[in-house]
């Protein structure tokens, strides 16, 4: 185990201000072994700046509240160890930049919650004839990766599509929402249709797969490779691929298959009998 044994003083620059402006303020506080950036921020709060605004909850990388930028890198403060920095190295902590500052390290992340409201919900297919639901590990594993998301919104913070281009917020929902949409689209039981919405309303085409979302994800979700690119491929099939389009036309017109299996026919499938009540 590598631990520093002697307490040392750390200096940290914390961005302080609000929607009208602000600046970095430097603080010096004693540091203990094993400390993370959030511990130092808390110590600054307790001893120097009681009104220093910061969001946090679990302090164990599970809730995704304490997102900030440490030396310009989007990070969870609770998972950024102080011993990552060389003694004497300057440490600057600032709020995430994709969202408007409320105060100090706290920003207005309502963008994400508004976008979430526009996602068509999960709509399961009917149960098995015995009233049970069966899913298999190989099918749930792919989606479980997306369910690891702790909604820290660091991917939204780093995504240049909205970070650097405020206008795009209207037509682009950001990596977090694509992870969510991928989870629903690839859910083995789901029957809802979202592909056209993903292209037109959530703006998947704005993503130029530069993979910064994947780089900053504290949950190691392969956002670009496993969520966004497979969604792009599904959009291609539904919207851009001429061969897929032609095949759909032929199948629809063909006399061999008068009732093509599709998401719509699934919706109207006969309900299965209710499970015997316990």
């Amino acid at each position: 185990m590598t631990t520093e044994t002697v307490a040392r003083e750390v200096r940290m620059k914390v961005w302080r201000g609000d929607a009208t402006g602000g600046e970095f303020v430097e603080f010096a506080v004693p540091s203990d072994p094993g400390m993370v950036v959030l511990d130092v921020v808390h110590r600054i709060q307790a001893t120097h700046a009681p009104d220093l605004a910061v969001r946090w909850n679990c302090k164990a990388g599970k809730c995704g509240s304490c997102s900030a930028e440490v030396n310009g890198h989007p990070k969870l403060m609770c998972m950024t160890r102080m011993n990552e920095f060389a003694p004497g190295e300057e440490i600057a902590v600032s709020p995430v930049k994709s969202f408007p500052v409320i105060k100090d390290l706290v920003t207005d992340v309502s963008f994400n919650y508004e976008k979430a409201k526009t996602v068509p919900p999960f709509k399961p297919k009917p149960k098995d004839p015995d009233g049970k639901r069966r899913m298999y590990q190989e099918d749930v594993e792919r989606v479980q990766e997306f369910h690891k998301c702790i909604e820290c919104f660091l991917c939204q913070d780093v995504c240049h599509v909205i970070r650097d281009h405020e206008d795009n917020k209207r037509s682009f929902s950001g990596p977090r929402m694509f992870v969510r949409l991928a989870a629903l689209e690839m859910h083995p039981l789901d029957t809802n249709e979202r592909i056209d919405l993903i292209r037109a309303q959530h703006g998947l085409g704005y993503c130029n797969i530069t993979k910064c979302c994947t780089e900053v994800c504290p949950e190691d979700i392969h956002i670009t490779d496993n969520a966004i690119i497979p969604l792009k491929e599904r959009v291609v099939t539904a919207h851009y691929d001429p061969l897929a389009w032609a095949l759909r036309r032929i199948r629809r017109a063909g006399p061999a298959s008068p009732a093509p299996p599709g998401p719509q026919s699934k919706e109207f499938a006969a309900p299965t009998p209710k499970p015997p009540s316990a």
Partner: peptide, 8 residues
């Protein structure tokens, strides 16, 4: 002090 736009 900086303007609101500058903050972002």
């Amino acid at each position: 002090a900086t303007t609101a736009v500058d903050v972002r």
